[in-house]
């Protein structure tokens, strides 16, 4: 006698309902979190790698400007590396031998921007968004601010993170 092999009954037209309740819960939590971090600022500043900004309770939103950053390893203008930094000090080769506060590559780049944008007639137009690592001493900050002032950018905005 031939044995009948078991064949599972498959209904070709059968549909099944996926339980999406837990997925909806997850999306709701995600949505609330994203709504909290949603930014309505016109200007977004990208954090510079290696720069730990100090915390401040200021409530002023960022504005457009030329971005200068100093991390424990380098001084940058936007994405362009201007000088190396060692022990929170700018390398000696970048400093003018006649003026210890003057950073030559930074001045030259800012001058180029001045010429390109024709900002020279009204120096107060030039705004700088300054992102500095929280451990950088004032002596190094002063060199950058001094050079920026000399290049016609006296309006320096200090970028900080929100917090106390």
């Amino acid at each position: 006698m031939k044995r009948n092999r078991y064949k599972p009954e498959i209904k070709r037209n059968q549909t099944f309902a996926l339980n999406i309740t837990s997925m909806t819960d997850m999306f709701t939590i995600l949505l609330v979190f994203l709504l909290q971090t949603y930014s309505t600022n016109d200007v977004q500043i990208d954090p510079v790698s290696g720069v730990r900004l100090p915390a401040s309770n200021t409530d002023k939103n960022p504005v457009n400007g030329i971005k200068i950053s100093i991390s424990p390893t380098e001084l940058k203008l936007d994405q362009l590396k201007l000088a190396s930094v060692t022990d929170n000090k700018i390398e000696q080769a970048a400093i003018d031998p006649n003026d210890g506060e003057f950073i030559k590559p930074l001045f030259e780049e800012l001058q180029k921007l001045n010429e390109a944008h024709k900002l020279k007639p009204d120096i107060k137009i030039g705004k700088i968004l300054f992102q500095a690592d929280q451990e950088v001493p004032y002596a190094t900050l002063r060199k950058i601010m001094y050079t920026a002032s000399m290049a016609g950018f006296p309006n320096i905005k200090l970028v900080t993170v929100v917090g106390n």
């Binding site: 909806t24 999306f27 994203l34 971090t37 949603y38 930014s39 200021t58 002023k60 905005k157 900080t160």
Partner: peptide, 24 residues
């Protein structure tokens, strides 16, 4: 769920995970 799936990428793009301010 369909609405949320569309909203999440939009909010992900415009979220500022590190909120920065300026002093002035």
């Amino acid at each position: 769920l369909a609405v949320m799936v569309k909203l999440v990428p939009v909010l992900l793009v415009s979220s500022a995970f590190v909120q920065m301010m300026i002093i002035e």
